[in-house]
């Protein structure tokens, strides 16, 4: 499988993280998204007319939507699947709010920044309420006691919220949820999401 990838993209990271947790190997084709805008080059548009990343290539299969790619990677891993559609829809909303706020703050995307952040805070509050209820039931993850596609879809843009000027300081349940994901065997980091250094220390 070849992933057309940009190192700072939250959506590309979703795919890299999902594959890493599943133990699947991806051949990364690095795209110069910034500053060269290679995702809009003729070659890339031939592959994906939308001109977006990520793009996953597996034989004849070409997937250009991160939700579709996550479904594809987990097609033989039912333990990661559940009622995924609402969570993938939420992940898309998070990308429009927190994700765009981040692109505004880092790369000067033309975004209504106040609206993007306010929408992000609303979604974070909903997620926090949900994860708080999950913890009352003894669950560490969005859909239960074990990690699922839903978690991986939502994790990147939530964790990277501070990049777009949205603080995560006052979301205790989300912080523990993010920590649970960062503790998973096979977890990989991206810039803005540090690894848990304490894990490498033998107690």
């Amino acid at each position: 499988m070849i992933l057309y990838d940009y190192v700072l993209s939250a959506s590309c990271y979703k795919v890299r993280l999902m594959a890493a947790l599943l133990g699947q190997s991806l051949t990364l084709h690095t795209v110069n998204f910034h500053p060269a805008r290679e995702h809009k080059s003729a070659d890339m548009l031939a592959l994906n007319p939308k001109g977006t990343l990520p793009v996953l290539l597996d034989g004849e299969t070409v997937l250009t939507d991160s939700a579709d790619i996550l479904r594809y990677l987990t097609r033989d891993a039912p333990e990661w699947r559940g009622d995924d559609d609402p969570w993938l829809a939420l992940a898309a909303d998070l990308n429009e709010s927190l994700g765009m706020a981040r692109l505004h703050d880092i790369l000067q995307y033309d975004v209504d920044i106040d609206a993007a952040r306010a929408a992000g805070v609303k979604q974070l509050r909903k997620l926090e309420a949900h994860m708080t209820a999950q913890r009352f039931d003894g669950h560490l993850f969005l859909t239960g006691a074990v990690p699922a596609l839903a978690d991986i879809a939502c994790f990147p843009n939530v964790s990277l919220a501070p990049d777009g000027g949205v603080s995560l300081d006052t979301y205790p349940s989300l912080r523990l949820w993010m920590r649970a994901i960062r503790s998973l065997p096979g977890f990989i980091e991206m810039p803005g999401i540090h690894r848990l250094h304490e894990l490498e220390f033998p107690e």
Binding site: D169, P172, L176, R179, E198
Partner: peptide, 28 residues
């Protein structure tokens, strides 16, 4: 500044009290 169950052993969280920034942490 927080509930103990939200700051389990080996974690640290930021909190702000009257504009003073705090790191609240729980040892192993």
């Amino acid at each position: 500044v927080g509930l103990c169950e939200d700051v389990p052993a080996r974690t640290v969280v930021p909190r702000r009290v009257q504009n003073t920034d705090l790191a609240i942490w729980c040892s192993t």
